[in-house]
Amino acid sequence: MARRQKKSFMPALAILPTWLTVVVVYIGAMVWTLNLSFTKSKLFPSGAYVGFDQYERLLGSSKWIKAVSNLATFGVLYVLGCLVIGFCLAAALDRKVRFENAFRTLFLYPYAMSFVVTGLVWQWLMNPVLGVQATMQGLGWESFSFDLLTSRDYAIYGVVIAGLWQGSGLVMVMMLAGMRGIDVEQWRAARVDGIPAWRVYVSIILPQLGPPLAAVATLLTMGVIKTYDLVIAITNGGPGTATEVPAKFIMDNLFQRQNLGLATAAAIMLLMSVVIIVAPFRYASYIRAKRKAGVL
């Protein structure tokens, strides 16, 4: 009896540090943040509660609204774009092209870079007096224009392009790994039936790539929520506040603007939006798992 108790006690002890980290660091910090978001804390945490005032101010701030809508635009275009481009690259490499290794390395290379480097490189490329536009015009194509970052309306798309350049390689590698795991017999069968290659990829290969697709989409989405360094390096939120994102809004208010209350309210809003997006997925997979268990 004593032995059995010891046996179940040891794993619990081993996992205790992790549990403590989760409870104290994650949950604790979350509760603390939530608590601060109801106070009028400036530079220092304060105990003066003001109810939902900070949230009201937040929702009344055009900068925050802009930041959230930018995040949505960037998020949708970045995740979908990365998936499409990454899948196409993977399909192209899957055709047993020559120098496949070299291409694979080349395409994955941007992912090895920090967002700050990516941001700076693209800032220069898209600078109308230094980058691609200046070069093309110098070569004689006078009407060529590539100046997304200078316009308030288009700057966010410039950020998306830099993000795609960085993120597509990861999708490609994961997709390629998935494709290599698919039985070659399927290809033979398709060839016998005379099905064109693109059709095989879209209708036969793609449906089998569910798990890697879900994994990579999750990774990209998490990256979207955290988007900070890329924007800082490319535009620093400008022109004006055109490329503001929530993470930058929070950081600005935490430090530079010395407004803990508003920053924590923004952080909680961001957390809520993540929960709202993630919860249905979690619920769906939970139901699916249950059903599977029931069937088995």
Partner: peptide, 19 residues
């Protein structure tokens, strides 16, 4: 003015000039 107001002023001018 307070750091927060400095931020708001900066935002305002940046938006105005770039619109």
């Amino acid at each position: 003015i307070t750091p927060e107001q400095v931020g708001l002023l900066t935002d305002f001018v940046g938006e105005f000039f770039n619109t």
